[in-house]
Write a protein that binds this DNA or RNA. Structure first.
Lengths: 190, 190
DNA sequence: TGCTAATGAGAGGTAATAAA
DNA sequence: TTTATTACCTCTCATTAGCA
């Protein structure tokens, strides 16, 4: 069943109000451009679409076969595929963007969470350090003149921050912890 | 200066190889589509472009003025602006995407850095805890039967992670620290 | 020559507005 | 209110030019 170059594709057309008085057979502007375009029929597009999802690349053979099956010019088929690829590319971009966007949002939240965690732990470390000092002092005053504690608060030798040039950048963020934790930032920043 | 419906636009034209063998006045395909299009000249496009960056919206007044200045149909000007807006929108999307992409990349690096920091501090805390336990034990065995230490490792009351539903999600990441630090994850995870 | 990118323009849909 | 106009948007098809 060949479609007959639908102006009214399908069959059910509510009488749309005409909006411009196209005199006869085509509009022509100041540049003398004459232009008539027919949309492809539903069936034509369907078959092209199926053919596209099957394989977005179009070899000459398939192009000619499709063209004769659809009653189209082979070049029309080629053009359709080209435009279809462009559309697909654009759509992909939109999708990737929204995906990346949500990833980014959750990354920001997670960073905030991690920064909070870091601050929290620095506070804990400070407390532990104080406690150790207190215990050491107490022990030294009471009995032993010489301490045997081997504990030290120095950092481990490996620090990723130095690898990525992140030193001191810990808190230059959109989110900001505006409470007592800020006290510890300056205390512990290295 | 009116451009005369340029086939050879402007005046400085390196001899373009003609490729379309449009017999006479237009190509027609199997669907009876007739279509002729002329590119706008350099000067026309330039003026339109300048007008666009000045203001992407086109009021009727400006449209008519531009049309007469360029020797174009007002509708051509309108169409040009319409297409220009669409192109601009698409280009914006591309730009935003690459921007977001680099943001995302640095966020990943930063997260890795923060996670490393967290692990490092957990190790330190573990060491401190052990030291405290050792000191307390030592003190209790030596002299005082009753401990007076008030230190505890419990967390601060406020935890942002709970606000954002991040509990337990600390380490479900792309990057993974595959060394001894992993031992401490289960120890301190809450 | 084939593909891609850029571009021009038609078709239909929609919203705002003016006229009947 | 209904109807007609108008502008704008999205989608679509086609052309042109540059690259390989």
């Amino acid at each position: 069943m060949e479609s007959e170059y639908c102006e009214e594709e399908g069959g059910e057309e509510k009488p749309r109000r005409r909006r411009k008085k196209n005199k006869g057979e085509g509009s022509s502007n100041a540049n003398g451009v004459v232009l008539r375009k027919r949309k492809l029929s539903k069936e034509q597009v369907n078959l092209l679409e199926m053919s596209f999802v099957d394989e977005p690349k179009l070899e000459t053979e398939r192009k000619d076969k499709l063209a004769s099956e659809l009653g189209l010019d082979p070049q029309q088929v080629a053009v359709w595929f080209q435009n279809r690829r462009a559309r697909w590319k654009n759509k992909k971009l939109v999708d990737e963007y929204s995906k990346l966007k949500s990833e980014n949002d959750s990354a920001i939240v997670e960073r905030f969470s991690l920064e909070t965690e870091v601050l929290k732990m620095k506070e804990q470390l400070s407390e532990a350090e104080k406690e150790i000092q207190r215990l050491l002092l107490e022990r030294n005053c009471n009995n032993n003149p010489v301490s045997t504690s081997s504990f030290s608060m120095e950092q481990p030798s490996f620090n990723h921050g130095e690898y990525f040039g992140m030193e001191g950048r810990l808190m230059d963020n959109v989110f900001f912890v505006a409470d007592d934790h800020t006290t510890y930032i300056t205390l512990w920043d290295y």
